[in-house]
Every structure is written in structure tokens, then in C-alpha cells.
Design a protein around this nucleic acid. Structure first.
Length: 757
DNA sequence: TGGTACACTTAGAATGACGGCC
DNA sequence: GGCCGTCATTCTAAGTGTACCA
């Protein structure tokens, strides 16, 4: 086996990787982890490798040389390879710099429809704001340096254009793309003009924006007390709770049907936090959660939910309109002359913490966030958002080196939560694009890096061997880096660098293959990673060495952490981190799979099945799982019933065709000939329908426990999919829904049919 | 060198919207 | 027209990675 990085045959039993976290978790319950104790291992290593100092310095020299070589090799600007694309697009590179001046400096189809024109006053104020975009990032360097004259001329043009654009427009478009003229709606959609931020230059020195204005967050609605007929019972007796205690009780009642409320940890944490909200009288009365009866509350909320569903169309419409109004008011910001959608403008409401897996803090009370907890970030010269009457913000900040608009600290883990922009925004899109370009740079030097880590498996230094084996896993199996976690603060999950001895079983021989490593651990979100992988002999021997004399709960890589690993990777390639391997391997797998399995002769559903299969290969590689939908069995059965019916229909149609043919043979007239033709067409039509249903069934079955969305959204360079669509005449809408198309607008615009990752 | 704060991406579950079918 | 299943969207937890400090 030499450098096998095909991700589809590297696993003995990839299909057996399934989400079995509940059973699995028991294995780790109540464990005392001593994996931070490295002292004895250090002693062990010292005695084994006495000349490590010398090796260290010579290694560094080699690395520096390699780094230089890599820099030279990768330094050239990476252009997209679509040679058949129209010239404008062909010339555009990922550096984000336009080849021609932007035609519409500022366009905001929303402005006139905005009810609160005040909010947009700053657009006018902003119109002369220019973005100085000299790139500091190597990848995004402009290909040609502009002269100052060029710049000022262009700036002047742009400014003029922007002024034009800010002037009231005759046409405005609403969210659905309907065009209104002077307030009147037109029935027909017109193509929306989108801002092509990818044709513009980027900011430098970590500046994220020059101007930012928004309306602040939308707070969770205040607590609405229960009606007096909805009662809480303690020990079988009605008990009126104080408003605060009642609110927290409703959080529990709302979750009564959820498995969470049966978990001991959840109940314990809830009870502890609930008591903090009780009056002293309540505290003295309520002493046992098991004696609390929340069922009336629970029924009440279920009834409310039913009532919501049963609302009249008009009432539903009213709610929808109100939501739309809130969205229009709070869901957008102005960032550097453009109206951008905010991703999460609502503050997380209070409730009970739903940690994943065996989270020690599940059930704790997530407290209500008030204005006094909120830090607002916006431009000094913008109209600052106002806190609700009678309240104050914690702070108003003007930090343009960050992308967030609002932040607060949550009380469960003490972490900071942010309000940020939607994935379709410039600020997110640029970053996403950059991510794929970094992965494409890795493509150019991955063979060298692989050669190096293979070489490092033989290193005299334990730390280098560990680093090399870990990197091999990250590369081959697309494992996450595995940062260290605070014990007892979160669920016990691991990634590559934090793997423990107990997570691996070594098999000299298994299923007819040599040197098999069996992985079994809980990864991000407590999703189980189970995989049996044949590895190279040297890796296997190294693993034996790393595991020697260790307890199951000891770290496998005791000389390694993500910081050390990433520092090393940074030396191998600028911008390289462990995460890049996952992006690279996901994207390259999609590209290879599509190249391999797409049959140009296939019809559209079959081609889409091929696409989904390629996507699935990536999802399996990245271990993106989902709980099988509750309705899965039933819906499969329904589909099968449809298939059976269609088969019968086909048999009937074929019989009819046969008899029509026989009839035509005897009668030899036009009418019977026509009858044969129409029967033939009917057979064809039914065959197509049957095929479609069968493809659907296959797709659904194969997708039972696999989530395609995560890889599609976060790991697969969208240009691969778009190029594939263009090449094989598939509508992009078949692959990406509306939201995804908005997120990947940059890729849709720039990828031609010949783009290769 | 390790700890921590912070900023940001990635993740599956929950919820909501919508369209097809009876 | 209502029900049901599916897909889209929202929500927020859980990761990664960097900067900074002692």
C-alpha cells in the first residue's frame, strides 16, 4: 500500500459507521481521565531516543528548505482553469479583483421598500466611502498592481455610479423578486441585479468593514404567564408558583415528551437551577422533582401548538406579515454601502440547555438576555441601535476588525454568542471562497506533504512520529484536529490529536487484510465514529509503540496537540491547518467521484443520482450522520407500493401494445398503426416514470443515515458542482436550493463547465 | 509553553413551509 | 380542503484556530 488516498476503498467497513452513541457512551461513563499526565511517558521517551536534540535542529533545517521550495512552487497566482468561459470570466481570478470596473457601484433593490427610511440615511452618508482594497493575503493578491491614476479615475467613476444608485429608483424589488413600480406590484419576475462583491478588491490589515449600521437585536418575547386554569401540582396538590418559578417550570413542561427529561443529569441540573428561581416558600415546599406534576402545563402547550396549526389562513397570513415586518426592520444591516442580510438577529430565548451527548450541563437554565448583557458593534458615524426604552446596552463598540454586530456572554459555558451576517453576504462569501482556494493550494503540494509525513514515520523523535501518524489520519480519514477540552465542562468527545488509547484497537490481521486499525470514538456532537481501516505497516508499528505501557484512558498522541500540529502545517504551506485537509479531501473526492461515475448518456434523474452518490461518498468520509427520519420505513413502504403499482401499469401497457401490434399486422390500416404508436409512447412514458421512482427509492435508501447537507454547505467547493451542472446540462436548481444558490452566488457566476478543483 | 479569550466555522436537531395526493 | 410527508430554514451547540499574556 503506498500513499493510498482514495477515500472510497480505504475502509473495510465504512457502512458500519453508524450513530450508536447511546450504547457507546456507557462505555465512557464515570471515567477518570488521567490523560494529561505525561510525565511517565516523557521519561520513557528520554530513555529511548537520546539524540533527539541533534535531530531536532537538522530537521528544522530541512523543513525550512522545504518551506522555501513550497513557497516558490505555490507562489504563483492560481487561476480558475475554465478556458472555455467567456473572456471576462476567464480573466477573473480568485483574488477578488475585478478585471473590469464594476458596472453598478451600489445597487440596493430594497431601499425604497424599506419602511424606516431613517435607517438608511447612512447609505447616502456612505456614498462617498471608498474601500481601499490592497490585499495582504497571498492568495488574494491582485494580479496587477493598479496605478494611482487608474485608481482615482475608477474611484471617481464608481462614486458617480454610487451616487446614481442611491438616488431613488423607479423600480424596487421585494424579497420574492416581484417588481413593484411606484408602489404597484407587477406580476412578472425580473432578474434581480446582484452585487458581485467577488469582482471587487478586498480589505487589508484585518479590516472587515468601513461602515456598519444596524438596528440591534430582537429580544425574546417577555414571559407570558399561564392562564389560571392551567395548574402545577406538587405531590398531587395544586400549587401556585411565582411568575419566575413558573416560567422555568414551563421550560421543563415544554420538553416533557423529550428524552432529555428522563435523563438523570438533565433533571438534576434543571432542579438545581429551578430552585434558584423559587421563592423561599417554594423552596421549602418543593423538595423532590419526582413529585412535580407538569402535565397540565404540557397539555396546555400542546393545545396551543395545535391551535396555531388550526389557525385560519388569514390569521396565519397576519403572523407571516408581522414576521416579515420584523425581518425587514431588524434582519438587514448596511455594511459598506450594501444592504446585507443578518443571519440570526434574534437573541436566543431563555430555556433549558440542550447539550448533545452526555453533556454534564444539560438541563441547566439558560437565562434571559437583557439589553445590559448586550455589546453592540457598529460604526461610530452610523445611527446606533437603540436599546428598549428604559434600558441600556452593556457597551457600544466600534471594532471594524471583527464581523459581528451584536454579542453577549451566555451563562452555561461562559462563551460569547454573536449576531453575524448571512452566508450570502460579502463578508462570509469572501471567507468561504478563500477557504476553497487554500484547499486548492494544498492540492498542489499534498504529495510532497504526504511524502514528508511518510518519511517522518521513521523519525528518531517520538513527537515527530506522532505528528506524522496523526497527520496521516487527518489526511486519510478526514478526522478533525481534536483540540483539548476542559474536563467535566462538555461531553467526552475527541478528534485526532485528542484520541485516547481506548479509542483504537489494533488487529494484525482482520477480514483478510493486514494491519487493521479499528476506531471507535465519539466525535463532534457525540456522533460515533466507527471504522476499520487497513493502514501501512509502519503506521501500525508506530501505533503499537505509542500505545505501549499506556492505560486505556491515556492520550494516544501524548507528544502532540493541535497547536503543535498546526504550527508544523503552517511551515509546510502558508495558511495550512488540519481543517484544510478535510476541505481538500472532501472536495477532491467529489471531483474524482463525479469524473468517475457520471455517464453523459444518462438521463437527468440518473445523473442526479450519480451526483448524490458522489456527495454521499464525501458525507461518509466526513462521517456526517443523521438520525434516520422517523417516517423513514413508512415512506419507503409507500414508495415501494407506488413502484409495484407502476410495474403493473407497465405490464398492462405492454400487453396492450402487443395486442395493438397484432391488430395492426392483421388490419394494416392507418388507424391501427396510430394506435401502435400511441401504445408505444405510453409504454415509454411508464418506463420513465418507473425508472424515476426506482432511482428515488435507491437514493432514499442509500441516504437513510447520511446527511448530505453539511458537506454540501461547508466542504464541497461549489464550483465543482456548478461546473458539473453546466457540463452535463443539469439545472443548478436541481443541486442547490434557493438559499444555497444565494450562498454560492460567487461560484455560480465564476465557474465554467471545465472548472476542476 | 500553556492557559485563556475571542472570533469564527461546522454541525445535527427542531421547527416551519409547502406541495402533492386523496 | 385537509392531511401528510418532505424539504427548507432556523436555531444554537460544538467544534477549529489565533492572539495574547504570564
Amino acid at each position: 500500500m503506498s500513499g493510498d488516498h482514495s477515500h472510497n476503498d480505504s475502509q473495510i467497513d465504512s457502512g458500519s459507521r453508524h450513530n450508536d452513541s447511546h450504547k457507546h457512551k456507557d462505555k465512557y461513563k464515570d471515567k477518570e481521565h488521567k490523560h494529561k499526565d505525561h510525565k511517565k511517558d516523557k521519561e520513557r521517551e528520554k530513555s529511548k531516543y537520546s539524540n533527539s536534540e541533534h535531530r531536532d535542529s537538522s530537521d528544522k533545517k530541512h523543513r525550512d528548505k522545504d518551506k522555501e521550495r513550497l513557497k516558490l512552487k505555490d507562489g504563483s497566482s492560481d487561476k480558475q482553469k475554465d478556458k472555455h468561459k467567456e473572456k471576462k470570466k476567464e480573466e477573473r481570478s480568485f483574488d477578488g479583483k475585478p478585471k473590469k470596473e464594476k458596472e453598478n457601484g451600489f445597487e440596493s433593490p430594497f431601499i425604497k421598500s424599506e419602511p424606516d427610511n431613517d435607517f438608511y440615511h447612512s447609505l447616502k452618508h456612505e456614498k462617498s466611502l471608498k474601500r481601499e482594497r490592497n490585499d495582504d493575503d497571498a492568495e488574494f493578491k491582485p494580479k496587477k498592481i493598479k496605478t494611482e491614476n487608474d485608481r482615482s479615475e475608477k474611484k471617481a467613476k464608481k462614486r458617480k455610479q454610487e451616487e446614481e444608485d442611491i438616488k431613488p429608483k423607479k423600480k424596487i424589488k421585494d424579497k420574492k423578486g416581484e417588481v413593484a413600480t411606484d408602489g404597484k406590484k407587477k406580476a412578472k419576475k425580473e432578474p434581480e441585479e446582484k452585487w458581485k462583491w467577488w469582482e471587487e478588491e478586498r480589505y487589508t490589515d484585518g479590516v472587515k468593514w468601513k461602515f456598519l449600521e444596524h438596528k440591534g437585536p430582537v429580544f425574546a418575547p417577555p414571559y407570558d404567564p399561564l392562564p389560571s386554569n392551567v395548574k402545577f401540582y406538587y405531590d398531587g396538590k395544586h400549587m401556585k408558583l411565582s411568575s419566575t418559578a413558573e416560567e422555568v417550570a414551563t421550560f421543563f413542561a415544554k420538553m416533557l415528551d423529550h428524552e432529555y427529561t428522563t435523563k438523570e443529569v438533565f433533571r438534576k441540573n434543571f432542579y438545581k437551577d429551578w430552585r434558584k428561581e423559587m421563592t423561599s416558600e417554594e423552596k421549602s415546599k418543593i423538595t423532590d422533582l419526582n413529585k412535580c406534576d407538569f402535565s397540565e402545563m404540557s397539555e396546555y402547550f400542546k393545545a396551543q401548538s395545535e391551535a396555531r396549526k388550526a389557525m385560519t389562513k388569514e390569521d396565519k397570513q397576519k403572523i407571516k406579515e408581522e414576521n416579515e415586518r420584523i425581518l425587514q426592520e431588524y434582519g438587514f444591516c448596511i455594511m459598506d454601502n450594501h444592504k446585507e442580510r443578518i443571519a440570526n438577529f434574534r437573541i436566543e430565548p431563555p430555556g433549558l440547555f440542550r447539550g448533545r451527548g452526555d453533556h454534564p450541563k444539560m438541563g441547566m437554565l439558560k437565562r434571559r438576555i437583557r439589553s445590559e448583557d448586550i455589546i453592540v458593534n457598529c460604526s461610530k458615524d452610523s445611527k446606533h441601535p437603540k436599546p428598549p426604552p428604559g434600558t441600556k446596552w452593556k457597551e457600544v463598540r466600534h471594532d471594524n476588525k471583527v464581523t459581528w454586530l451584536v454579542s453577549w456572554t451566555e451563562n452555561i459555558q461562559g462563551s460569547i454568542k454573536y449576531i453575524m451576517l448571512n452566508p450570502s453576504s460579502r463578508i462570509k462569501g469572501e471567507k468561504d471562497w478563500q477557504k476553497y482556494e487554500t484547499a486548492r493550494r494544498l492540492k498542489k503540494c499534498v504529495e510532497r506533504i504526504r511524502a514528508q509525513y511518510r518519511d517522518d514515520w521513521k523519525s528518531k523523535e517520538m513527537r515527530i512520529r506522532q505528528r506524522a501518524v496523526a497527520l496521516y489520519f487527518i489526511d486519510k480519514l478526514a478526522l478533525r484536529a481534536g483540540n483539548e477540552k476542559e474536563e467535566g465542562e462538555t461531553a467526552d468527545t475527541v478528534g485526532c490529536c485528542s484520541l485516547r488509547v481506548e479509542h483504537l484497537t489494533l488487529h494484525q490481521e482482520m477480514g483478510g487484510q493486514e494491519y487493521v486499525v479499528e476506531f471507535d470514538f465519539l466525535g463532534k456532537d457525540s456522533i460515533r465514529y466507527y471504522n476499520k481501516v487497513p493502514v501501512e505497516k509502519r503506521v501500525f508499528k508506530n501505533l503499537q509503540l505509542f500505545m505501549e505501557d499506556k492505560e486505556p484512558e491515556d492520550d494516544l498522541f501524548d507528544r502532540l496537540n493541535t497547536s503543535i500540529l498546526n504550527k508544523h502545517l503552517q511551515e509546510l504551506m502558508d495558511g495550512l491547518t488540519a481543517k484544510v485537509f478535510r476541505t481538500y479531501n472532501a472536495s477532491i473526492t467529489l471531483q474524482q467521484q463525479l469524473n468517475e461515475i457520471t455517464n453523459s448518456e444518462d438521463n437527468v434523474p440518473a445523473k442526479i443520482l450519480s451526483y448524490n452518490r458522489a456527495n454521499r461518498a464525501v458525507a461518509i468520509l466526513c462521517n456526517h450522520q443523521r438520525a434516520p427520519p422517523k417516517t423513514f420505513e413508512k415512506s419507503m413502504q409507500n414508495l415501494q407500493t407506488k413502484i409495484d403499482a407502476k410495474k403493473e401499469q407497465l405490464a398492462d401497457a405492454k400487453r396492450e401494445l402487443k395486442s395493438a401490434k397484432a391488430d395492426a399486422k392483421v388490419r394494416r390500416d392507418e388507424k391501427s398503426k396510430k394506435a401502435v404508436e400511441s401504445k408505444k409512447k405510453a409504454v415509454q412514458r411508464i418506463e420513465e416514470q418507473l425508472m424515476k421512482l426506482e432511482v428515488q427509492a435507491t437514493d432514499r435508501e442509500e441516504n437513510k443515515q447520511i446527511a448530505l447537507g453539511t458537506s454540501k454547505l461547508n466542504y464541497l467547493d461549489p464550483r465543482i458542482s456548478i461546473a458539473w451542472c453546466k457540463k452535463f446540462g443539469i439545472q443548478i436548481e436541481k443541486i442547490y436550493n434557493k438559499t444555497q444558490r444565494e450562498k454560492f452566488a460567487w461560484a455560480i457566476d465564476m465557474a465554467g463547465k471545465d472548472f476542476q478543483f
